[in-house]
């Protein structure tokens, strides 16, 4: 009996100290830091992204896109390079508006950041810059371990009902606040997606994930992997960041 009581007290102290540890942190600053770490506010960012989707009972599908981002204007452009059948299709996003371009019909279709990217588990919004500080408040926090890495775990709740993902749970490294894992929850508290960021690369002082693994928690067995390669922060011409660019590359 005494032993059980002792163990209970130790556990309580451990939890309290972990909570106390995270409660003393300025989470607003942490979220701002997380956003800043991936925000190329001084220049442009481009990369080649490979998106591989796995669905049970179907062959894996792979798409390669050239991705250009200008965070100061909240714009990004993507052009599909492979497979051959989809070469030339593209996306242009400015703020909350997103258009999909089909070179076959030479028409733009208005889309949404909330829609899935090319029938994968990635969403179009996964390609825009992070805005956790602007969109979320922090609820419960704790310290934990993710594998062998010391992390903080925080439950984020959307500040208003216009943010697409109502709740997110994030696991961030204690030493540099890099996000290692995220869980996205619906308004009804149902787990929808889990995203893992196993490795990061440094590009011009900023952190870009080398890969993202997205698991669809609603559709059993579906997952998508995004890999970022050939990254660059070379300044891009202004005409890359408008809809006409997608038409021009297909001429």
């Amino acid at each position: 009996m005494k032993k059980i009581l002792a163990y209970l007290i130790i556990a309580l102290v451990a939890v309290s100290s972990a909570s106390a540890q995270t409660a003393s942190l300025d989470w607003n600053k942490i979220l701002t830091r997380i956003d800043e770490m991936g925000d190329f506010e001084k220049g442009d960012f481009s990369a080649e992204v490979t998106v591989v989707s796995q669905k049970p009972g179907k062959d894996d599908s792979s798409i390669v896109v050239r991705y250009f981002r200008r965070d100061v204007e909240k714009k990004f452009t993507m052009v599909i390079l492979k497979p051959e059948i989809q070469k030339g299709q593209g996306y242009f996003c400015a703020g909350d508006d997103l258009w999909f371009y089909d070179p076959e019909s030479r028409k733009f279709a208005y889309s949404s950041l909330k829609e899935s990217f090319q029938d994968s588990d990635a969403q179009n919004s996964d390609f825009s810059a992070s805005s956790l500080a602007k969109d979320y408040t922090v609820g419960d926090t704790s310290a934990a371990k993710l594998g062998s890495i010391d992390v903080y775990v925080a439950m984020l709740t959307a500040k208003d009902n216009k943010v697409a993902v109502a709740k997110r749970k994030i696991w961030i490294r204690q030493d540099n606040y890099l996000v290692l894992k995220e869980e996205h929850y619906s308004v009804s508290d149902r787990l929808m997606r889990t995203i893992a960021y196993p490795k990061y690369q440094t590009v011009d002082g900023k952190f870009v994930p080398m890969s993202m693994l997205i698991v669809d928690n609603l559709k059993v067995g579906e997952k998508t992997q995004l890999t970022f390669a050939n990254t660059s922060v070379t300044k891009l011409p202004d005409n890359v960041f408008n809809k006409d660019y997608l038409e021009r590359v297909n001429k």
Partner: peptide
């Protein structure tokens, strides 16, 4: 059955 949908404000939701 699980139904993935959006609220009228555009937030992602899941119904059963």
């Amino acid at each position: 059955l699980v139904v993935q949908l959006s609220t009228i404000h555009g937030q992602q939701n899941v119904a059963e």
